[in-house]
Write a protein that binds this DNA or RNA. Structure first.
Length: 643
DNA sequence: CTAGACGTTGTGGGG
DNA sequence: GCCCCACAACGTCTA
């Protein structure tokens, strides 16, 4: 379209190849093209994002910006430091935008945000172009073909997919780009409120990404640095960016046997350097790899390979179907997909450490009730890799350090925290994964936690993962444990998964004594914690409790769950906070927390203590899932900064 | 409607 | 390495 001035809004599509939305933008034959990222306070302060995932995002942005410049020296990614909801009306005018183009996003917050932006664009007379490119199928279409029901099995996705038709081939990356127009900033920056800042546990300095105007400290629209965000250094070896993603995909595809015969359950969660799976998940999350590019590159190898190729759901393309399944479920259920409360498809189980619920929004707040000091201690020891079970601790330490663990490793730690050990609410575990995973995707994370906790998607709760037996399927010698729990490096193979069974003489010889809860040193020896419970005993307790909760048969939207009267259906002595009769699942609601336990940060010694029974909160009343535009407005300070 | 097979990824024992 | 079974037993999908 002649004379069109197009604003291309990058979000979770940080790539040039396989982007239907970018192709649509270029189809407009724009007179000028602005490539924009809006630096959203929702992500900076109100979502759980550790330094590793932030680094991955910045990698993706910097790589994309360089690629844009390669196609046209005048182009780059223009990072604008303001929430899109407040920025766009000003920007549309200042840059005389005629079209706004972006990729469709069905995440709950993204839907709210995009509805607002769409309304603002309409009011400004800006035309909107939206294309789907994030999943194999448009989640809304999937759901429509399922008669409005959430996609709760891969079979449903496959059947719906057949009706929708073939998955489109990827669109090629552009080979040239029009110039951007001028970028005047003759308007004021609306600064967000820094509080609540649920990421402050990851900062060792002040967060400054909004304090130097819309175009940043160099006035050049460059992405910020971790230092500007006040974040501690990243520790992951996994780096982001489309260039890396495409190189990784090339090397996977080059190995035809691996690509065509991949079977997820047979890959080793204990493998490191190299890992057994593709490591492409964070690239799919940020969009530095196009999902249809991945699908078709694999599918072409599979088609040529013949009968010996593996099939969905275990094959590589099968993994993508699971991703679509979770997106389809989330698209139907919205914010409540990420919690049990008010979720029609999640089973209600009276877990320990239940979430606080905001009575107005019916959404979890980010805080939780400490119904049992023991469960809280278990949770903290789990989070920081000091359970005394080397397999679990190695995984949790790898997760914290590198931001990625193998899918089956995620199974092991999730089963252990919930139905197969601690009987702690899966929402606690999901929050830790959200904080630390570089590939965190709300739909997949919530869905997989529901799967492992046996509250949805999966129900064979009697299949419990053993922290001792499971890893031995792949790693008899315990190489993985020795890598991530180095204090056990010299332990005999016989005791590597059960160090508490090693005779004292062997412990001394290995230079590490099994004692206490913390780990540390004792004289000349290192120490490793005793196991925090007898696993066989906890397995029995959990099985009995799960069986009972299944028999009671409540779902998250049952009136008795909503009003707290579910307790009448459980024996007072049953596992979990089942005593008494009244109150919401979390036993506390907003404004009712006399014994608020504040988060003590992420440092050493922040766990393994025993807080009093009471409540625990992020200290900043999360509100993470509660924010529509109305509440977002409330969080935006009206302080204006002249640029 | 029912019956039976199946469900990406359990464990422990046996062949 | 592969298969089978018992354990005690869930929901979904298909015939």
């Amino acid at each position: 379209m002649a004379n069109s001035r197009v604003l291309y809004w990058f979000r979770t599509d940080l790539r040039l190849h396989d982007s239907p939305a970018l192709a649509a933008a270029l189809d407009l034959k724009p007179e000028c093209l602005y490539c924009v990222w809006t630096w959203d306070p929702h992500y900076v302060y109100r979502a759980r994002v550790g330094p590793n995932r932030f680094q991955f995002l910045l990698d993706c942005q910097n790589d994309l910006s360089a690629s844009l410049t390669k196609l046209n020296p005048k182009q780059k990614l223009l990072l604008l430091r303001e929430a899109p909801q407040t920025l766009f009306p000003k920007l549309f005018k200042a840059w005389r935008i005629s079209h706004l183009v972006f990729e469709k996003d069905t995440d709950a917050y993204a839907k709210d945000r995009d509805e607002t932006v769409t309304r603002l664009a309409r009011e400004a007379g800006v035309e909107i172009v939206v294309r789907m490119g994030r999943t194999l199928y448009d989640p809304d279409e999937l759901v429509k073909k399922c008669k409005g029901k959430p996609t709760m099995s891969v079979t449903m996705v496959q059947n719906a997919g057949k009706q929708i038709g073939a998955i489109p081939r990827p669109t090629p990356a552009p080979t040239s780009l029009p110039d951007p127009g001028d970028t005047p900033l003759d308007f004021e920056q609306e600064q967000p409120a820094q509080q609540p800042d649920i990421n402050d546990i990851h900062r060792n300095d002040t967060e400054k990404s909004y304090s130097s105007g819309i175009s940043g400290p160099g006035s050049d629209f460059a992405p910020p640095t971790l230092q500007e965000l006040g974040l501690k250094p990243a520790t992951t070896p996994h780096r982001g960016g489309e260039t890396i993603a495409l190189r990784m995909l090339d090397s996977i595809i080059a190995n035809e046997d691996y690509t065509a015969t991949f079977e997820k359950p047979k890959t080793a969660p204990t493998a490191f350097e190299p890992q057994a799976t593709t490591l492409l998940s964070p690239h799919l999350h940020f969009g530095s790899l196009g999902v249809r590019e991945f699908y078709w590159r694999v599918q072409d190898v599979v088609s040529a390979y013949g009968r010996r190729a593996s099939q969905p759901p275990t094959s590589l393309t099968g993994q993508l179907l699971f991703r679509d399944m979770y997106f389809g479920a989330q698209a139907t259920l919205g914010y409540s997909f990420a919690q049990t409360y008010n979720n029609s498809h999640a089973r209600f189980i009276p877990w320990h450490l239940p979430s606080h619920i905001s009575p107005d929004s019916r959404l979890i707040t980010g805080g939780y009730a400490v119904d049992s000091p023991t469960a809280e201690r278990w949770f903290q020891r789990w989070k920081h890799g000091r359970t005394g079970f080397p397999w679990i601790d190695a995984l949790m330490r790898q997760l914290r350090l590198e931001g990625w663990i193998h899918h089956l490793g995620r199974h092991a730690v999730a089963s252990f925290l919930t139905r197969g050990g601690c009987y702690v609410d899966w929402e606690r575990g999901a929050e830790v994964f959200e904080e630390w995973l570089i590939d965190h995707e709300t739909a997949s994370n919530a869905g997989n936690w529901q799967w492992l906790a046996c509250v949805a998607f999966y129900s064979m709760f009697y299949r419990v993962y053993s922290p001792v037996a499971f890893p031995q399927k792949w790693d008899k010698e315990g190489k993985f444990v020795r890598r991530y729990v180095p204090e056990l490096k010299e332990y005999p193979v016989k005791y590597i998964y059960e160090p508490w069974k090693a005779p004292l003489a062997d412990q001394r010889k290995a230079g590490c004594l099994v004692m206490g809860e913390e780990g540390g040193t004792e004289g000349e020896y290192a120490t490793y914690p005793r196991p925090m419970f007898d696993f066989a005993e906890r397995r029995e307790v959990c099985l009995k409790a799960m069986k009972n909760a299944y028999k009671v048969g409540l779902y998250g939207n049952d009136p008795r769950v909503l009003d707290g009267s579910w307790r009448k259906l459980f024996d007072d002595a049953a596992e979990g906070p089942t005593e008494g009769e009244g109150g919401l699942p979390g036993a506390t609601i907003e404004g009712d927390r006399t014994e608020d336990v504040r988060q003590r940060g992420d440092g050493e010694g922040d766990d393994a203590k025993s807080p009093e029974v009471g409540t625990r909160d992020t200290g900043k009343r999360g509100l993470k899932r509660e924010r529509g535009q109305a509440t977002l407005d409330g969080l935006v300070k009206r302080k204006r900064v002249k640029k």
